[in-house]
Amino acid sequence: MGSTPFRGRPTVAATIAVATALLGGATAPAFARWEATPVSAHTQTETLQPEPTSPTAYEFGETLAGLEGEELEITFLAEIIGHHQGAIEMAELELERGTSPDIRTHAENIVADQQHQIEQFTRWLDQWYGLTPEEAMAQVPAEAQEEMKILEEETQMIIEELSAVEAGEDFDVAFVQKMIPHHNSGIIEFLEPQSRAVHPQLRVAATAGITTQQAQVADFRTWLAGRA
């Protein structure tokens, strides 16, 4: 799956346009205030919509689009490792509390796939740049550091909210509602390395990440629509 490389620093609109195409139109205004949807009884149709994708994810995608070469790779790898770890924590909660066989299977795949990429990306950071994920985080541009901090705080808030949901079908619904935007954020982060990473193996891994997460988002949306 290809994407169009940005030439020079793109506009916010350009970043959103590419993300919108990949997310099937499921985007939020770039600078809208992000708020989690309260978890409540899922019998109400309005609660069966996925939560919005964090606008900070779009801002971080724009930041990546303005970076080149080594700086692009290090910044992306520093962010995606933590992002994947958050998805794994969410998926492990689904395995503890969820009841849907389909959603639990997706959770198992998320743990396996994203743990594999974490190990792969951590190894590449060391091999290519002699950095640990923590060291990489410390040397990315200040703008990216601030956006990464916000994204981490949002992920932790999501995990805390999921931790407060009781086991059962309600947990399956809450997990899906929150994993869709988390995957959407990951897809946005993969865009630039997919087309412009220096190392071809990173371009391949980014393409695989987009493909896998798009497929899971489509399945999650179908499952969620079936609960209405």
Rank of each mutant, 00 (worst) to 15 (best):
P181I: 06
L67P: 00
G86T: 11
G209I: 11
L162I: 09
Q177W: 01
T75Q: 03
N184W: 12
P200W: 08
G209D: 00
L202C: 04
E62T: 13
V176Y: 03
Q177T: 12
D102T: 12
R97K: 15
A112V: 13
R196I: 03
E166N: 11
T56W: 01
G24M: 04
H199D: 14
A32V: 14
Q201A: 15
S195G: 11
R104K: 12
A26M: 15
F121Y: 15
A78N: 07
A26E: 14
E68I: 01
M179W: 05
E161L: 10
I74A: 06
V111M: 01
F121G: 08
D170W: 00
A144T: 07
E143Q: 12
K178Y: 13
L162Y: 10
G186S: 11
I159C: 03
E161C: 02
A208P: 01
E161T: 09
L93W: 04
E71L: 14
T63W: 00
H182M: 05
Q213F: 02
F6P: 06
A30W: 12
A32W: 05
A164Y: 02
V165D: 08
A65H: 12
A228S: 13
V217Q: 07
V111S: 00
F220R: 01
P193W: 04
T4R: 05
S3T: 13
E68A: 07
S40C: 09
T43H: 11
I210H: 03
R196E: 15
W128T: 00
E146W: 02
P141I: 06
E46M: 10
L93I: 06
A78K: 03
I88C: 01
P5N: 03
A41V: 05
P55W: 08
D113C: 00
W34K: 13
A215C: 00
A174P: 02
E143I: 06
F190M: 14
M90I: 07
Q127T: 12
A32N: 03
P193M: 02
Y58W: 15
A19Y: 01
Q120K: 03
A228Q: 14
L77I: 14
T155Y: 03
F6R: 11
T75E: 02
A112L: 08
G25P: 12
